[in-house]
Amino acid sequence: MFENVGFSELLVLVLAGLFILGPERLPDAAAWLGRTIRQVKEYATGAREQLKNEMGPEFEQIRKPLEDLRELRNFNPKQAITKHLWDDQPDEKPNGHPSTGYPPVPTEQAPPQRPLAHNERPPYDPDAT
C-alpha cells in the first residue's frame, strides 16, 4: 500500500500531522489510522476467502485475468524490448509461427564474399551511391 512512499514523504506527512493535530492528538490519530487499515485488510481478506469458498474452482479462472492485469501495471518497456531483441527462442503461437502470427519472411542467401586480390578494385554500384 505504501510501496512508493519514501522517507522524505513520510517525514512530510508526520510533520503535517503534527502541525494539524498537535502533539497531544497525533499518537491517538496514528493509532486510529493503524486500526482502520488493519480492519480494512481483514475485511478484504474475509471477502476474498468467502468468494473463494462460494465459487470454488471458478475463482481461479477469474483470478488469472486479474493477475495478468496486475502484471501490466508493472510493465517495463525497456525490459520487454530487451527480452524481445535478445531472446533466442521467439514465442510460438498455436499456428506454429512466431509471435507476430505471420509466417517468417524468406531471406535470400547472399553469395559468399571473397577477399579482394592485390590492386583489385572493389565492385561499384551506381544505384547505391
Results as ranks from 00 to 15, higher is better:
Lys83His: 10
Ile81Phe: 13
Pro103Met: 05
Glu60Val: 00
Tyr102His: 12
Ala29Ser: 13
Asp91Glu: 13
Val5Cys: 06
Pro123Val: 05
Glu108Arg: 09
Ser99Met: 06
Pro122Leu: 14
Gly34Val: 02
Val12Phe: 08
Glu42Gly: 04
Val12Ile: 13
Thr36Pro: 00
Leu10Asn: 09
Asn4Glu: 12
Tyr43Thr: 13
Glu120Asn: 02
Arg38Asn: 08
Pro106Thr: 12
Gly6Val: 04
Gln79Met: 11
Pro126Gly: 05
Leu116Arg: 11
Tyr124Asp: 10
Gly6Pro: 07
Gln39Tyr: 07
Ile37Asn: 09
Glu92Leu: 15
Ala110Asn: 08
Pro122Cys: 03
Lys41Thr: 08
Pro23Ser: 13
Pro111Val: 03
Ala128His: 06
Phe59Gly: 00
Thr82Ala: 11
Asn95Thr: 02
Pro98Ser: 12
Gln50Arg: 11
Val40Met: 13
Ala44Arg: 13
Arg70Lys: 06
Arg73Cys: 02
Lys93Phe: 07
Gln113Ala: 13
Gln50Asp: 14
Thr107Trp: 08
Arg48Leu: 15
Pro104Leu: 09
Lys83Tyr: 10
Glu9Thr: 15
Ala80Gln: 07
Gly6Phe: 02
Pro103Ile: 09
Asn4Ser: 15
Asp88Met: 06
Glu42Lys: 12
Glu67Asn: 07
Pro77Ile: 05
Glu24Asn: 12
Leu26Ser: 01
Ala128Val: 03
Pro90Cys: 10
Arg38Met: 08
Gln109Thr: 15
Ala29Gly: 04
Tyr102Cys: 07
Arg114Ile: 06
Leu51Ala: 15
Trp86Gly: 01
Glu92Thr: 11
Leu85Thr: 11
Thr129Asp: 09
